[in-house]
Design a protein around this nucleic acid. Structure first.
Length: 379
RNA sequence: CAUAGGACGUAAGGG
Protein backbone atom coordinates (compact mmCIF):
# COMPACT_ATOMS: atom_id res chain seq x y z
CA UNK A 1 0.00 0.00 0.00
CA UNK A 2 2.78 2.36 0.89
CA UNK A 3 4.44 2.15 -2.48
CA UNK A 4 1.15 2.56 -4.30
CA UNK A 5 0.53 5.70 -2.31
CA UNK A 6 3.98 6.96 -3.14
CA UNK A 7 3.34 6.37 -6.82
CA UNK A 8 0.03 8.18 -6.65
CA UNK A 9 1.66 11.19 -5.03
CA UNK A 10 4.46 11.20 -7.53
CA UNK A 11 1.99 11.36 -10.39
CA UNK A 12 0.05 14.13 -8.74
CA UNK A 13 3.09 16.30 -8.14
CA UNK A 14 4.18 16.04 -11.72
CA UNK A 15 0.92 17.00 -13.27
CA UNK A 16 -0.45 13.58 -14.17
CA UNK A 17 -3.91 13.70 -12.71
CA UNK A 18 -5.33 10.97 -14.92
CA UNK A 19 -2.60 8.52 -13.97
CA UNK A 20 -3.05 9.40 -10.34
CA UNK A 21 -6.76 8.73 -10.55
CA UNK A 22 -6.20 5.45 -12.34
CA UNK A 23 -3.68 4.39 -9.72
CA UNK A 24 -6.15 5.24 -7.03
CA UNK A 25 -8.95 3.26 -8.64
CA UNK A 26 -6.82 0.23 -9.43
CA UNK A 27 -4.99 -0.11 -6.16
CA UNK A 28 -5.43 -3.58 -4.66
CA UNK A 29 -6.01 -2.00 -1.29
CA UNK A 30 -6.25 1.52 0.06
CA UNK A 31 -5.65 3.05 3.43
CA UNK A 32 -6.53 6.47 4.73
CA UNK A 33 -3.35 7.96 3.33
CA UNK A 34 -4.47 7.00 -0.16
CA UNK A 35 -7.59 9.08 0.21
CA UNK A 36 -5.73 12.07 1.48
CA UNK A 37 -3.21 11.83 -1.32
CA UNK A 38 -5.98 11.66 -3.89
CA UNK A 39 -7.72 14.59 -2.29
CA UNK A 40 -4.64 16.74 -2.68
CA UNK A 41 -4.16 15.53 -6.24
CA UNK A 42 -7.59 16.87 -7.08
CA UNK A 43 -7.18 20.32 -5.69
CA UNK A 44 -3.70 20.76 -7.06
CA UNK A 45 -5.30 20.40 -10.45
CA UNK A 46 -8.11 22.75 -9.49
CA UNK A 47 -10.77 20.09 -9.37
CA UNK A 48 -12.38 21.52 -6.31
CA UNK A 49 -15.69 19.75 -6.71
CA UNK A 50 -14.11 16.34 -6.87
CA UNK A 51 -11.91 17.14 -3.92
CA UNK A 52 -14.94 18.12 -1.93
CA UNK A 53 -16.94 15.05 -2.78
CA UNK A 54 -14.03 12.78 -1.93
CA UNK A 55 -13.69 14.59 1.35
CA UNK A 56 -17.36 14.08 2.10
CA UNK A 57 -17.06 10.40 1.35
CA UNK A 58 -14.09 9.86 3.63
CA UNK A 59 -14.71 7.76 6.72
CA UNK A 60 -12.24 8.86 9.32
CA UNK A 61 -11.25 12.42 8.84
CA UNK A 62 -8.25 13.52 10.83
CA UNK A 63 -6.26 16.74 11.03
CA UNK A 64 -4.49 15.99 7.78
CA UNK A 65 -7.73 15.57 5.85
CA UNK A 66 -9.06 18.83 7.20
CA UNK A 67 -5.81 20.59 6.47
CA UNK A 68 -5.94 19.34 2.92
CA UNK A 69 -9.51 20.49 2.43
CA UNK A 70 -8.70 23.87 3.92
CA UNK A 71 -5.86 24.25 1.44
CA UNK A 72 -8.10 23.10 -1.36
CA UNK A 73 -10.38 26.06 -0.77
CA UNK A 74 -7.58 28.48 -0.13
CA UNK A 75 -5.67 27.69 -3.29
CA UNK A 76 -8.75 28.07 -5.39
CA UNK A 77 -9.56 31.49 -4.06
CA UNK A 78 -12.26 30.63 -1.54
CA UNK A 79 -10.79 32.17 1.57
CA UNK A 80 -14.07 32.34 3.42
CA UNK A 81 -14.75 28.65 2.91
CA UNK A 82 -11.25 27.90 4.09
CA UNK A 83 -11.92 29.91 7.18
CA UNK A 84 -15.08 27.94 7.85
CA UNK A 85 -13.13 24.72 7.81
CA UNK A 86 -10.59 26.28 10.09
CA UNK A 87 -13.23 27.36 12.59
CA UNK A 88 -14.93 24.00 12.56
CA UNK A 89 -11.80 22.09 13.49
CA UNK A 90 -11.47 20.84 17.05
CA UNK A 91 -7.82 19.93 16.68
CA UNK A 92 -5.34 22.15 14.90
CA UNK A 93 -1.65 21.65 14.30
CA UNK A 94 1.07 23.94 12.95
CA UNK A 95 0.13 23.08 9.42
CA UNK A 96 -3.47 24.08 9.99
CA UNK A 97 -2.46 27.48 11.25
CA UNK A 98 0.14 27.99 8.60
CA UNK A 99 -2.24 27.00 5.84
CA UNK A 100 -4.75 29.53 7.09
CA UNK A 101 -2.03 32.14 7.30
CA UNK A 102 -1.02 31.40 3.72
CA UNK A 103 -4.62 31.62 2.60
CA UNK A 104 -4.82 35.19 3.85
CA UNK A 105 -1.36 36.11 2.67
CA UNK A 106 -1.97 34.99 -0.89
CA UNK A 107 -5.14 36.98 -1.07
CA UNK A 108 -3.57 40.20 0.12
CA UNK A 109 -5.32 40.16 3.46
CA UNK A 110 -2.30 41.24 5.38
CA UNK A 111 -4.06 42.30 8.56
CA UNK A 112 -5.85 39.00 8.94
CA UNK A 113 -2.65 37.15 8.21
CA UNK A 114 -0.92 39.07 10.95
CA UNK A 115 -3.71 38.25 13.38
CA UNK A 116 -3.34 34.55 12.67
CA UNK A 117 0.40 34.78 13.02
CA UNK A 118 0.18 36.42 16.42
CA UNK A 119 -2.49 34.05 17.61
CA UNK A 120 -0.75 30.80 16.70
CA UNK A 121 0.44 28.57 19.51
CA UNK A 122 3.50 27.30 17.59
CA UNK A 123 5.40 28.52 14.59
CA UNK A 124 8.03 26.84 12.50
CA UNK A 125 10.27 28.04 9.70
CA UNK A 126 7.51 27.62 7.13
CA UNK A 127 5.20 29.83 9.15
CA UNK A 128 7.81 32.54 9.39
CA UNK A 129 8.49 32.42 5.70
CA UNK A 130 4.84 32.86 4.77
CA UNK A 131 4.57 35.92 6.96
CA UNK A 132 7.85 37.30 5.73
CA UNK A 133 6.90 36.84 2.09
CA UNK A 134 3.54 38.47 2.70
CA UNK A 135 5.24 41.61 3.99
CA UNK A 136 7.90 41.60 1.33
CA UNK A 137 5.47 41.32 -1.53
CA UNK A 138 3.31 44.14 -0.36
CA UNK A 139 6.31 46.39 -0.12
CA UNK A 140 6.54 46.49 3.65
CA UNK A 141 10.23 45.89 3.70
CA UNK A 142 10.94 47.13 7.21
CA UNK A 143 8.49 44.68 8.69
CA UNK A 144 9.88 41.94 6.53
CA UNK A 145 13.40 42.72 7.61
CA UNK A 146 12.40 42.70 11.26
CA UNK A 147 10.93 39.25 10.89
CA UNK A 148 13.92 38.08 8.94
CA UNK A 149 16.31 39.14 11.67
CA UNK A 150 14.34 37.36 14.36
CA UNK A 151 13.89 34.25 12.24
CA UNK A 152 14.77 31.18 14.28
CA UNK A 153 15.68 28.69 11.58
CA UNK A 154 16.44 30.47 8.36
CA UNK A 155 16.94 28.44 5.22
CA UNK A 156 17.35 29.06 1.52
CA UNK A 157 13.63 29.56 1.00
CA UNK A 158 13.37 32.32 3.57
CA UNK A 159 16.47 34.00 2.21
CA UNK A 160 14.98 33.89 -1.24
CA UNK A 161 11.80 35.47 0.01
CA UNK A 162 13.79 38.33 1.49
CA UNK A 163 15.95 38.71 -1.60
CA UNK A 164 12.90 38.76 -3.83
CA UNK A 165 11.28 41.35 -1.61
CA UNK A 166 14.21 43.70 -1.99
CA UNK A 167 14.62 42.98 -5.67
CA UNK A 168 11.02 43.57 -6.63
CA UNK A 169 10.95 46.86 -4.82
CA UNK A 170 14.05 48.11 -6.50
CA UNK A 171 16.46 47.75 -3.59
CA UNK A 172 18.94 45.92 -5.72
CA UNK A 173 22.02 46.48 -3.60
CA UNK A 174 20.41 45.06 -0.51
CA UNK A 175 19.09 42.15 -2.49
CA UNK A 176 22.49 41.51 -3.92
CA UNK A 177 24.35 41.67 -0.67
CA UNK A 178 22.03 39.05 0.80
CA UNK A 179 22.37 36.99 -2.32
CA UNK A 180 26.15 37.08 -2.06
CA UNK A 181 26.02 35.75 1.45
CA UNK A 182 24.43 32.54 0.25
CA UNK A 183 27.06 29.97 -0.55
CA UNK A 184 27.32 29.24 -4.26
CA UNK A 185 26.74 25.55 -3.80
CA UNK A 186 23.39 26.01 -2.15
CA UNK A 187 21.94 28.41 -4.71
CA UNK A 188 19.07 26.92 -6.66
CA UNK A 189 17.08 28.00 -9.73
CA UNK A 190 14.53 29.88 -7.67
CA UNK A 191 17.01 32.01 -5.78
CA UNK A 192 18.93 32.76 -8.96
CA UNK A 193 15.92 33.78 -10.95
CA UNK A 194 14.72 35.96 -8.08
CA UNK A 195 17.93 37.96 -8.27
CA UNK A 196 18.06 37.98 -12.04
CA UNK A 197 14.44 39.04 -12.45
CA UNK A 198 15.19 41.85 -10.06
CA UNK A 199 17.87 43.12 -12.39
CA UNK A 200 15.89 42.71 -15.58
CA UNK A 201 12.77 44.27 -14.11
CA UNK A 202 14.75 47.38 -13.32
CA UNK A 203 16.67 47.54 -16.53
CA UNK A 204 20.03 46.51 -15.10
CA UNK A 205 21.07 44.17 -17.85
CA UNK A 206 24.77 44.56 -17.37
CA UNK A 207 24.59 43.63 -13.74
CA UNK A 208 22.54 40.61 -14.69
CA UNK A 209 25.07 39.41 -17.22
CA UNK A 210 27.89 39.98 -14.82
CA UNK A 211 26.17 37.91 -12.18
CA UNK A 212 25.61 35.11 -14.61
CA UNK A 213 29.28 34.59 -15.17
CA UNK A 214 29.70 33.91 -11.51
CA UNK A 215 26.89 31.42 -11.14
CA UNK A 216 27.43 27.68 -10.96
CA UNK A 217 26.99 25.76 -14.18
CA UNK A 218 23.72 24.21 -13.27
CA UNK A 219 22.10 27.60 -12.95
CA UNK A 220 23.33 28.77 -16.29
CA UNK A 221 20.12 28.13 -18.10
CA UNK A 222 18.70 31.08 -16.25
CA UNK A 223 20.99 33.21 -18.38
CA UNK A 224 19.00 32.60 -21.50
CA UNK A 225 16.67 35.33 -20.34
CA UNK A 226 19.49 37.79 -20.18
CA UNK A 227 20.85 37.05 -23.56
CA UNK A 228 17.45 37.26 -25.09
CA UNK A 229 16.79 40.52 -23.33
CA UNK A 230 20.04 41.98 -24.56
CA UNK A 231 19.16 41.12 -28.12
CA UNK A 232 21.28 37.99 -28.43
CA UNK A 233 18.53 35.75 -29.59
CA UNK A 234 20.80 33.19 -31.20
CA UNK A 235 22.86 32.81 -28.12
CA UNK A 236 19.72 32.40 -26.06
CA UNK A 237 18.33 29.71 -28.30
CA UNK A 238 21.61 27.86 -28.22
CA UNK A 239 21.64 27.84 -24.46
CA UNK A 240 18.06 26.71 -24.26
CA UNK A 241 18.77 23.72 -26.40
CA UNK A 242 21.68 22.76 -24.22
CA UNK A 243 19.94 23.30 -20.94
CA UNK A 244 19.12 20.06 -19.19
CA UNK A 245 16.23 21.53 -17.31
CA UNK A 246 13.51 23.69 -18.66
CA UNK A 247 12.48 26.20 -16.12
CA UNK A 248 9.19 27.62 -17.24
CA UNK A 249 9.52 30.59 -14.94
CA UNK A 250 12.70 31.67 -16.65
CA UNK A 251 11.07 31.42 -20.05
CA UNK A 252 8.22 33.53 -18.76
CA UNK A 253 10.56 36.11 -17.32
CA UNK A 254 12.28 36.36 -20.66
CA UNK A 255 9.00 36.65 -22.45
CA UNK A 256 7.79 39.48 -20.28
CA UNK A 257 11.09 41.26 -20.74
CA UNK A 258 10.09 41.44 -24.40
CA UNK A 259 6.47 42.26 -23.91
CA UNK A 260 7.11 45.05 -21.48
CA UNK A 261 9.55 46.59 -23.91
CA UNK A 262 7.00 46.35 -26.69
CA UNK A 263 9.10 43.92 -28.76
CA UNK A 264 6.17 42.05 -30.15
CA UNK A 265 7.92 40.13 -32.89
CA UNK A 266 10.57 38.74 -30.58
CA UNK A 267 7.93 37.85 -28.07
CA UNK A 268 5.95 35.95 -30.64
CA UNK A 269 8.98 34.06 -31.80
CA UNK A 270 9.86 33.13 -28.28
CA UNK A 271 6.32 32.07 -27.56
CA UNK A 272 6.32 29.57 -30.37
CA UNK A 273 9.64 28.14 -29.20
CA UNK A 274 8.55 27.51 -25.66
CA UNK A 275 8.46 23.88 -24.60
CA UNK A 276 5.61 24.46 -22.20
CA UNK A 277 3.22 27.29 -21.53
CA UNK A 278 1.05 28.14 -18.61
CA UNK A 279 -1.46 30.85 -17.79
CA UNK A 280 1.30 33.30 -17.08
CA UNK A 281 2.75 32.76 -20.51
CA UNK A 282 -0.53 33.33 -22.24
CA UNK A 283 -1.40 36.40 -20.22
CA UNK A 284 1.96 37.98 -20.88
CA UNK A 285 1.45 37.40 -24.58
CA UNK A 286 -2.03 38.84 -24.42
CA UNK A 287 -0.68 41.99 -22.80
CA UNK A 288 1.97 42.31 -25.45
CA UNK A 289 -0.73 42.81 -28.05
CA UNK A 290 -2.66 45.14 -25.82
CA UNK A 291 0.38 47.34 -25.42
CA UNK A 292 0.76 47.90 -29.13
CA UNK A 293 -2.96 48.44 -29.47
CA UNK A 294 -3.83 45.22 -31.29
CA UNK A 295 -6.89 44.34 -29.30
CA UNK A 296 -8.25 41.79 -31.73
CA UNK A 297 -5.09 39.75 -31.55
CA UNK A 298 -5.20 40.04 -27.80
CA UNK A 299 -8.72 38.71 -27.71
CA UNK A 300 -7.72 35.89 -29.98
CA UNK A 301 -5.04 34.86 -27.51
CA UNK A 302 -7.49 35.16 -24.71
CA UNK A 303 -9.85 32.69 -26.31
CA UNK A 304 -7.10 30.31 -27.28
CA UNK A 305 -5.87 29.99 -23.72
CA UNK A 306 -6.49 26.54 -22.33
CA UNK A 307 -8.25 28.11 -19.39
CA UNK A 308 -8.79 31.57 -18.00
CA UNK A 309 -8.38 32.63 -14.43
CA UNK A 310 -9.13 35.76 -12.48
CA UNK A 311 -5.98 37.49 -13.61
CA UNK A 312 -6.38 36.83 -17.31
CA UNK A 313 -9.96 38.03 -17.15
CA UNK A 314 -8.93 41.15 -15.29
CA UNK A 315 -6.20 41.77 -17.80
CA UNK A 316 -8.64 41.56 -20.67
CA UNK A 317 -11.12 43.78 -18.90
CA UNK A 318 -8.53 46.38 -18.06
CA UNK A 319 -7.19 46.32 -21.60
CA UNK A 320 -10.55 47.02 -23.15
CA UNK A 321 -11.35 49.71 -20.65
CA UNK A 322 -7.96 51.36 -21.07
CA UNK A 323 -8.00 51.41 -24.83
CA UNK A 324 -11.34 53.10 -25.05
CA UNK A 325 -13.76 50.23 -25.58
CA UNK A 326 -16.02 50.63 -22.58
CA UNK A 327 -18.88 48.75 -24.20
CA UNK A 328 -16.85 45.62 -24.84
CA UNK A 329 -15.32 46.00 -21.43
CA UNK A 330 -18.74 45.91 -19.93
CA UNK A 331 -19.63 42.79 -21.88
CA UNK A 332 -16.52 41.07 -20.60
CA UNK A 333 -17.37 42.25 -17.14
CA UNK A 334 -20.80 40.67 -17.33
CA UNK A 335 -19.31 37.36 -18.36
CA UNK A 336 -17.02 37.60 -15.38
CA UNK A 337 -19.95 38.05 -13.09
CA UNK A 338 -21.58 34.94 -14.45
CA UNK A 339 -18.42 32.96 -13.85
CA UNK A 340 -17.98 34.48 -10.40
CA UNK A 341 -14.64 35.86 -11.46
CA UNK A 342 -14.90 39.18 -9.75
CA UNK A 343 -13.21 41.06 -7.03
CA UNK A 344 -12.85 44.72 -6.03
CA UNK A 345 -9.74 45.36 -8.11
CA UNK A 346 -11.74 44.60 -11.25
CA UNK A 347 -13.99 47.52 -10.51
CA UNK A 348 -11.12 49.76 -9.67
CA UNK A 349 -9.40 49.11 -12.96
CA UNK A 350 -12.49 49.49 -15.05
CA UNK A 351 -13.74 52.62 -13.36
CA UNK A 352 -10.46 54.49 -13.40
CA UNK A 353 -9.92 53.60 -17.01
CA UNK A 354 -13.25 55.10 -17.89
CA UNK A 355 -12.57 58.22 -15.91
CA UNK A 356 -9.28 58.79 -17.70
CA UNK A 357 -10.98 58.68 -21.04
CA UNK A 358 -13.89 60.81 -20.00
CA UNK A 359 -16.27 57.88 -20.41
CA UNK A 360 -18.45 59.00 -17.58
CA UNK A 361 -21.50 56.97 -18.52
CA UNK A 362 -19.57 53.74 -18.79
CA UNK A 363 -17.91 54.40 -15.50
CA UNK A 364 -21.25 54.96 -13.94
CA UNK A 365 -22.66 51.67 -15.18
CA UNK A 366 -19.80 49.80 -13.52
CA UNK A 367 -20.61 51.72 -10.43
CA UNK A 368 -24.23 50.74 -10.51
CA UNK A 369 -23.36 47.11 -11.00
CA UNK A 370 -21.00 47.24 -8.10
CA UNK A 371 -23.83 48.25 -5.84
CA UNK A 372 -26.59 46.15 -7.31
CA UNK A 373 -24.79 42.87 -7.81
CA UNK A 374 -22.30 42.88 -5.02
CA UNK A 375 -23.73 45.16 -2.43
CA UNK A 376 -20.49 47.07 -2.25
CA UNK A 377 -20.27 50.76 -1.55
CA UNK A 378 -17.77 53.19 -2.88
CA UNK A 379 -14.80 53.80 -0.66
C1' C B 1 3.61 6.56 1.99
C1' A B 2 -0.31 11.82 2.72
C1' U B 3 -1.64 18.00 4.13
C1' A B 4 1.27 24.28 4.81
C1' G B 5 6.36 28.25 2.73
C1' G B 6 10.30 31.42 -1.72
C1' A B 7 11.25 33.37 -8.16
C1' C B 8 7.65 34.84 -13.65
C1' G B 9 1.67 37.42 -16.02
C1' U B 10 -3.37 41.71 -14.67
C1' A B 11 -5.19 45.80 -11.52
C1' A B 12 -4.70 49.62 -7.47
C1' G B 13 -0.94 54.35 -5.36
C1' G B 14 1.01 59.05 -7.49
C1' G B 15 5.69 63.69 -7.33
Amino acid sequence: VVSWNALLTAYAHNGYLEEAKKTFDDMPMKNSVSFKAMLSAFYQHKHLEEAKSLFDRMQNRDVVSYNAMLTAYAQNGHVEEARKIFDSMSQRDVITWTAMLAAYAHNNRLEQAKLIFDEMPDRNHVTWTVMLAAYAQSGKLEEAKLLFDEFPQQDLVSWTAMIAGYAQNGHLEEARSLFDRVSRESLDPVSCSAMISGYTQHGQLEQAVELLHELPERNLYASTSIFAHGGFMDKAREMLQESPQQNLVVWNAMLSAYTQGGCIEEAKELFTQMPRRNLITWTAMLMAYVQVGKLQQAEMFFHRMPEQDLISWSAMLAALAHKGHPASAFTVFNEMKILHMCEPSCFAGAITACSHDGEVDAGRSFFVSMRMDFGMEAS
